[in-house]
Design a protein around this nucleic acid. Structure first.
Length: 950
RNA sequence: AGGACUAUAGCUCAGUUGGUUAGAGCGCAUCCUUGACAUGGAUGAGGUCGGCAGUUCGAAUCUGCCUAGUCCUACCA
């Protein structure tokens, strides 16, 4: 073996070997276990969150595969409608100076497909580097023909079931992307704005209570006055009660609008008068519905002022002949230009009472960053309420379980207040809506134009398909069954659906998880007709944040690329990567400074195993995961530790008799001990994995392999292996234990660190008599109760106690570790002597002893530094080695600790209430502790006295 | 406004049903190139578990209030 661990040299070849041999394909034998990967964006790249989730999924899949389940990890990517379309638009614009409209729909889509071919391999390459054992044969893309068939079918079924409808509704309109977006894609953030107080003249000489001939309405959007349909006041607001049912003569637009009463109005806010613009505000829309107000749309698709307003009744039918008009001066103005113009005109007309600063939440599209415009448009919607009910029930009754449990609350609170879902998008890239229109504006839903004609007996009338596409989340909603071949009832569906677990971040519980549950339960049924859930467990991971706890984002320039952690990156390359191709280039300097500060030397190549192990070790129940380079460095060192331990084992066992062909073996205390400890480790790791505590699993592996196997067992094996007088049976026993425990540890660790375990396993497998082709197909280690040896564990604790006692004296007294020292045992029992006799070779080697002397009662001990193992004293003679004052100081320090403890225990045991109320076992335990501490303190005090007396 | 979550060593985090001398990794201090490993080894220092009350024989753990921070949901024009 190479002297140091070099991940780069071992990783990729193993992945190729596994993939080429079809080990990722479901075995077809055993209980099915399946996971679908949350599909990443095909044209994107994996971020740390993906790396975390994929590491966890792979750990689960590898574990279950080793446990001989029939495991399927379904892989695939999604087409990410808006994101991809924007990206390709920018690219075409930059490279050819053309817009998508210049190209036309078909040509533009060709460009998207070209881009997909070009960049789509990125994700799959990264997944391979991470070691993800996904079934590549079943890879799916949401825009595949087969998948499209499923999407279309779901749309048609939902439509036929009355759960999809089309209508003119107010939607979140993105004026830059020219598409509707869902509520979830709108981000509201605090922004500084103004509140304009505008005077609206009362019609027919009406006066307010205080004698004014106008009402004052406050608004954050003065420009929408062009679409005002009413002014509303609270029905019980005394100031305005006499005006309810009267009218306003609108300034600027020559229009008379009613004053209405609605208890939505808060009399305390502003003046208590609200202008109502049903076509441009969600609350106003609702009020418009209640009061049958006409809806006056004044904006075009760019959110610029129309030449002619579009006027609709409450049912969304256009009012063909109407009096509403927009003054020429404003026609075609952008909404913000129009705002200034209107404010100016109102000011000159003396109708602007005042302008106040006002903090507001501006709703912005999460892709474009522009303030979204509520706009009346024809869209397709899913009625979510009927779908939500069974989806809520499935979580309530435990058919679906969230881990950690608390996420169920998040799910419930959203599901119980769910809004209808606008699923149409005015994009080109996506699944085209399977609906056709005739020239009259009637529409027909079906599988194809032919299908529609036939179904509705339309003859050869003109039909054109809906231009719009479906929200990407609509198609990813059927990911679990769509990837398995639905609508065909495939073998895969029968076997692997419902899937076992979904691993995802909490940020997409609403976007994706909830919708997947709703759609799957509606479409997929068991043989008895009951709904199939998409997955039985939802494991919700935390979100990976940077070293300051900030979310990683390109614009902040704090993203880490998992591959850079694997391969390493120089600081200059990292800076270039973080500051290149930025949306806001002015931030580049700041980002460069931060980056150089945090990563002065760039990043080392830690390797996939260290990255995966680290991610798993960070996966506790919290919501946020701060990523700290120190952790991955420590775990890279852990890999190196395993590597070197294996190197030691090979040096001592290769071409030697390790008992793989039988033969007599004699096991030392150390051998029995490590086998026993291995059982405990196996139990801990498996328990942790079964409860999705990958941090605990990682911890258990780390401490067993490093702190027990490497730190103690390997050292304890040396006195045996290097003993010229050791018997063949002893040598065979120790070698066999060395390789067997290492081999089992590798299997235990394999789900978390696939590469290094495979590499080493291949080298040592003959030493344990195995000839399997890959560790990933070997059985997962199981706890075996009969290999637990409590006596061995206790005895080895004794051995460790002696060694640590001596080391403590050496360390504290400044005795060179190279200097052999004599050791005496005093006040020991027969049991102590028995352990000593059987194990003195361990002590001599590990504590570097010159001699070992057992003192019988009455034997005179020389003046010594003392360590205690139980009641037995372990003595290092001071003569020529130890300074009197130093030893006194050391003993006083020990005594101070013991005093503290005795005080605490005495207080506790002196309290009658404790003794009366606490369980007997607790009291007994505390008494024993006190007795032990007292005995130890006594011994040490005698030592102090003895030393002082000189 | 409502709700959730977090607060433990200098840093990043564990701590299961209340009974541990409160742990780990990194960092720090002292020492060590002994034949797996300096990406290492030995020893050690370091925490009144955010604050205040309460329940209890006993609280990092349960309850209430407070403080600080994060997030989600809904928003008053």
């Amino acid at each position: 073996m190479e002297k140091t661990y070099n991940p780069h040299a071992i990783e990729q070849q193993w992945y190729q070997h596994w993939e080429a041999n079809g080990y990722f394909t479901p075995s077809g034998e055993g209980t099915p276990y399946s996971i679908v990967i949350p599909p990443p964006n095909v044209t994107g790249s994996l971020h740390m969150g993906h790396a975390l989730q994929d590491s966890i999924m792979d750990a689960l899949i590898r574990l279950k595969r080793m446990q001989q389940h029939d495991t399927l990890w379904q892989v695939g990517t999604d087409h990410a409608g808006i994101a991809t379309q924007m990206l390709v638009e920018r690219k075409v614009q930059a490279e050819e100076g053309l817009t998508r409209h210049d190209l036309g729909r078909d040509k533009f889509l060709d460009r998207v497909w070209e881009w997909k071919e070009e960049s789509g391999g990125n994700i799959t390459r990264q997944l391979r580097r991470l070691g993800a054992s996904v079934d590549w044969d079943r890879e799916r893309f949401t825009m595949d023909d087969g998948f499209y068939k499923g999407v279309q079918e779901v749309f048609i079924r939902l439509y036929d079931d009355g759960l999809i409808y089309r209508g003119k509704r107010l939607v979140n309109w993105d004026p830059k992307l020219h598409t509707a977006i869902s509520d979830l894609e709108v981000i509201s953030e605090d922004e500084a704005g103004h509140l304009w107080h505008m005077r609206y003249p009362l019609a027919e000489g009406e006066k307010t209570a205080d004698g004014k001939d106008y009402l004052v309405v406050a608004t954050t959007r003065p420009e929408t006055m062009l679409g005002d349909a009413a002014v509303a006041v609270h029905p019980e607001d005394e100031r305005y009660q006499h005006l309810i049912g009267k009218f306003i003569d609108m300034p600027i637009v020559d229009r008379r609008i009613p004053i209405i009463a609605d208890d939505y109005v808060d009399p305390e806010f502003g003046t208590g008068c609200v202008k109502i613009t049903p076509a441009h505000d969600f609350n106003d829309y609702a009020m418009g519905q209640r009061h049958s107000l006409t809806m006056i749309n004044i904006f075009d698709k760019n959110a610029a002022i129309l030449v002619e307003p579009e006027v609709y009744n409450t049912d969304g039918k256009p009012v063909e002949v109407h009096a509403e008009c927009i003054p020429q001066a404003y026609q075609g103005m952008d909404r913000y230009v129009a705002r200034d113009a209107i404010v100016n005109d109102l000011t000159s007309a003396g109708l602007l009472e005042k302008i106040e600063d006002h903090a507001l939440k501006a709703p912005r599209g999460d892709r474009s960053g522009l303030v979204i415009e509520p706009l009346l448009t024809d869209q397709w919607f899913v009625s979510t309420k009927p779908l939500a009910e069974p989806a809520i029930a499935a979580v309530e009754d435990g058919r679906i379980e969230f881990v950690p449990k608390q996420w169920e609350n998040t799910y419930f609170s959203w599901m119980r207040d769910i809004q209808d879902w606008c699923i149409s998008r005015q994009l080109w890239w996506g699944h085209r809506i399977p609906a056709w229109y005739d020239d009259e504006g009637n529409f027909y839903v079906g599988r194809s134009e032919e299908d529609v004609r036939e179904k509705h007996k339309l003859g050869d009338i003109n039909l054109r398909q809906d231009d719009d596409v479906l929200d990407t989340w609509f198609s990813s909603g059927l990911w679990t069954f769509g990837t398995m071949g639905w609508p065909d009832m495939t073998e895969a569906l029968k076997k692997y659906h419902p899937t076992d677990v979904l691993v995802t971040g909490f940020d997409i519980i609403f976007f994706w998880v909830a919708r997947m549950i709703m759609m799957t339960m509606h479409i997929m049924k068991h043989e008895d007709g009951s709904a199939q859930v998409p997955f039985k467990t939802i494991y919700v991971t935390g979100l990976i944040r940077d070293e300051n706890g900030d979310k990683m984002s390109k614009s902040k320039g704090n993203v880490l690329d998992p591959l850079d952690l694997i391969d390493g990156i120089s600081i200059d390359d990292l800076v270039t990567k973080r500051t290149g191709n930025m949306m806001q280039p002015q931030l580049a300097k700041k980002i460069e400074k931060q980056t150089r500060k945090h990563f002065p030397d760039g990043m080392a190549a830690y390797g996939t195993d260290a990255l995966r192990f680290t991610l798993c070790s960070l996966a506790s129940t919290g919501r946020d995961i701060k990523f700290d380079l120190g952790r991955i460095e420590g775990n890279r060192n852990f890999c190196n530790k395993i590597w070197n331990a294996a190197s030691y084992v090979l040096m001592n066992c290769e071409d030697q008799d390790c008992g793989q062909k039988g033969g007599e073996v004699e096991l030392t205390l150390a051998d029995k001990w490590i086998v026993s400890r291995l059982q405990q480790a196996e139990k801990k790791v498996l328990t942790a994995m079964d409860s999705y505590r990958f941090d605990h699993a990682a911890e258990a592996l780390y401490s067993f392999i490093w702190n027990e196997y490497c730190a103690w067992y390997l050292e304890l094996s040396k006195p045996v292996l290097w003993d010229d007088n050791a018997s063949e049976a002893q040598l065979r026993g120790t070698r066999r234990t060395l390789v067997r425990v290492l081999e089992a540890s590798l299997r235990l660790a394999h789900p978390l660190m696939p590469y290094i375990t495979e590499e080493i396993w291949q080298k040592i497998k003959p030493l344990v008599g195995k000839d399997g082709d890959s560790i990933m197909l070997e059985p997962y280690p199981e706890f075996e109760a009969d290999k637990v040896d409590a006596q061995a564990e206790a005895d080895l604790d004794w051995v460790r106690g002696v060694i640590e006692g001596v080391r403590n004296i050496r360390g504290e007294m400044g005795i060179s570790p190279a200097k052999p020292i004599p050791l005496l045992f005093s006040k020991g029992q027969a049991a102590d002597q028995a352990i000593l006799d059987a194990n003195s070779q361990f002590l001599i080697k590990l504590a570097k002893l010159e001699s070992v002397t057992w003192l019988e009662a009455g034997d005179e001990a020389p003046l010594s530094a003392t360590a205690l193992v139980g009641e037995m004293e372990v003595l290092v003679p001071m003569a020529g080695l130890i300074d009197k004052d130093a030893e006194l100081a050391r003993l006083q320090k020990e005594l101070a600790k013991l005093d503290g403890e005795m005080k605490r225990l005495n207080g506790k045991l002196g309290n009658a209430k404790f003794v009366d109320n606490a369980p007997e076992a607790v009291v007994v335990k505390e008494r024993a502790k006190l007795a032990e501490a007292e005995a130890a303190a006594n011994t040490l005090r005698q030592q102090v006295a003895k030393i002082e007396s000189i």
